[in-house]
Simulated scan of single mutants.
Amino acid sequence: MVSQFGSLGYTIMGKTADLTVVQKTIIDTLHKEGKPQTFIAKEAGCSHSAVSKHVNRMLSGRKRCTTNREDRSLITIVKQNRFKNLSELHKEWTEAGVKASRATTHRRVKEFGYSCHIPLVKPLLNHRQCQRRLTWAKEKKNWTVTQWSKDLFSDESKFCISFGNQGPRVWRKGGEAHSPSCLKSSVKFPRSVMTWGAMPSAGVGPLCFLKTKVTAPVYQEILEHFMLPSADQLFEDADFIFQQDLAPAHTAKSTKSWLNVHGDGVLDRPANSPDLNPIENLWGIVKRKMRNKRPKNADELKATVKEIWATIPPQQCHKLITSMTCRIDAVIKAKGAPIKY
């Protein structure tokens, strides 16, 4: 494609000398259009540093095209919905009567400390659930790492063959990653396998791949054939506390009866609280290690998960268990809201 400025013939080869009037005009015109400086340098026939210096001098001596009040109105738009893209922000801002380019909109947002990120995914908590988490955390506030090391944390997790796109990005400042307005609600993905696993401080137990929906009878079979062997392997004859979430199959009367018969103490954690279960982080580690792997079918997916799970060292499990004291403090500080773990 021939540049609209190509006929001017002011290309300077090699080291850039002082910019000509025509080059300055080219730079000014393209900068107002929001073109990147690399593109501007090529069109003007000068170095990137020459463009950068000219733009900086131009900005330092030029009156801002928006007022402080207009700038604040843009930030209000950002805060109202953190998931709007730049074009939507620019459209809403200019529809309010502000005369600014799309590039100016981007600069103003960045000036206030916002940058665009892929949002973290956290469960949506209501007020009652936050209060339950806060009460639970206060009850465990004085627990030591030794006490947490006696817990056998368990959970199910879904592993996907297709990873899909990551959806819209979110505008946030540093330290706002876990702010409720910046979080994305978790969703379920197709083409996947469900697994059950358990871990204490000593390492991981055997994985169970689930073929059917987890009903109470199915869950009790998992406990019989996977949880008990894991406990025998990892705790030997020492006492332990089994920790599970509040899924219907876990809290069914028949499951409670099964646990009572087998003499296993159970420590239920609050609902919608994956951040209070270290095994969730372990699932995350496995999934990150799978990013460069693309299994073609369910059998390959299971083999990959099992292979990576077996490489988790006991030191990694112990490190996650020791984080429980920090998690408890964080929940109390956040008054029951989601925390960074």
Rank of each mutant, 00 (worst) to 15 (best):
residue 183 L to Q: 10
residue 183 L to I: 03
residue 184 K to E: 11
residue 184 K to Y: 11
residue 187 V to G: 15
residue 187 V to T: 15
residue 187 V to D: 13
residue 190 P to H: 05
residue 192 S to K: 11
residue 193 V to Y: 08
residue 195 T to S: 15
residue 196 W to M: 02
residue 197 G to W: 01
residue 198 A to N: 00
residue 199 M to Q: 08
residue 199 M to N: 02
residue 200 P to F: 05
residue 201 S to C: 12
residue 201 S to W: 10
residue 202 A to I: 09
residue 202 A to Y: 10
residue 203 G to F: 00
residue 206 P to K: 09
residue 207 L to H: 06
residue 212 T to P: 10
residue 212 T to S: 15
residue 213 K to Y: 15
residue 216 A to T: 04
residue 217 P to Q: 06
residue 217 P to M: 04
residue 217 P to N: 08
residue 217 P to S: 07
residue 219 Y to K: 03
residue 219 Y to C: 07
residue 220 Q to S: 11
residue 220 Q to F: 07
residue 220 Q to G: 10
residue 221 E to R: 13
residue 221 E to Q: 14
residue 222 I to Y: 08
residue 222 I to P: 05
residue 222 I to Q: 04
residue 224 E to Y: 09
residue 224 E to M: 10
residue 225 H to N: 14
residue 227 M to K: 02
residue 229 P to M: 13
residue 230 S to A: 15
residue 230 S to K: 05
residue 231 A to F: 03
residue 231 A to V: 02
residue 231 A to C: 05
residue 232 D to Q: 13
residue 233 Q to T: 12
residue 233 Q to M: 15
residue 233 Q to G: 11
residue 234 L to W: 05
residue 235 F to E: 00
residue 235 F to S: 03
residue 235 F to Y: 07
residue 236 E to F: 07
residue 237 D to N: 12
residue 238 A to L: 07
residue 240 F to M: 10
residue 241 I to P: 05
residue 241 I to V: 14
residue 242 F to I: 00
residue 242 F to G: 05
residue 243 Q to V: 03
residue 244 Q to G: 06
residue 245 D to V: 01
residue 245 D to H: 02
residue 245 D to C: 07
residue 246 L to D: 14
residue 246 L to N: 14
residue 247 A to F: 02
residue 249 A to W: 01
residue 249 A to G: 02
residue 249 A to F: 05
residue 250 H to L: 06
residue 250 H to R: 09
residue 253 K to S: 14
residue 253 K to M: 11
residue 255 T to N: 08
residue 257 S to E: 13
residue 258 W to Y: 14
residue 260 N to S: 14
residue 261 V to F: 15
residue 261 V to D: 15
residue 262 H to C: 08
residue 262 H to W: 06
residue 262 H to Q: 09
residue 262 H to I: 00
residue 263 G to D: 06
residue 265 G to S: 15
residue 267 L to D: 04
residue 267 L to P: 02
residue 268 D to M: 10
residue 268 D to T: 07
residue 268 D to K: 11
residue 268 D to Y: 14
residue 269 R to W: 15
residue 269 R to T: 10
residue 270 P to H: 04
residue 272 N to S: 15
residue 272 N to L: 15
residue 272 N to D: 12
residue 273 S to V: 03
residue 274 P to M: 09
residue 276 L to A: 09
residue 276 L to W: 02
residue 277 N to H: 01
residue 278 P to N: 08
residue 278 P to C: 08
residue 278 P to T: 01
residue 279 I to A: 04
residue 280 E to M: 09
residue 280 E to G: 11
residue 282 L to S: 08
residue 283 W to L: 06
residue 285 I to Q: 12
residue 285 I to N: 12
residue 286 V to W: 04
residue 286 V to S: 09
residue 287 K to W: 01
residue 288 R to K: 14
residue 290 M to C: 06
residue 291 R to C: 11
residue 291 R to V: 02
residue 292 N to H: 13
residue 293 K to G: 12
residue 293 K to R: 13
residue 294 R to F: 13
residue 294 R to C: 12
residue 295 P to L: 07
residue 295 P to Q: 11
residue 296 K to I: 05
residue 298 A to P: 01
residue 298 A to K: 15
residue 300 E to H: 09
residue 302 K to V: 01
residue 303 A to K: 12
residue 304 T to Y: 08
residue 304 T to F: 09
residue 306 K to V: 06
residue 307 E to G: 12
residue 310 A to S: 14
residue 311 T to D: 11
residue 311 T to I: 06
residue 312 I to L: 04
residue 312 I to P: 00
residue 313 P to E: 10
residue 313 P to M: 02
residue 314 P to C: 12
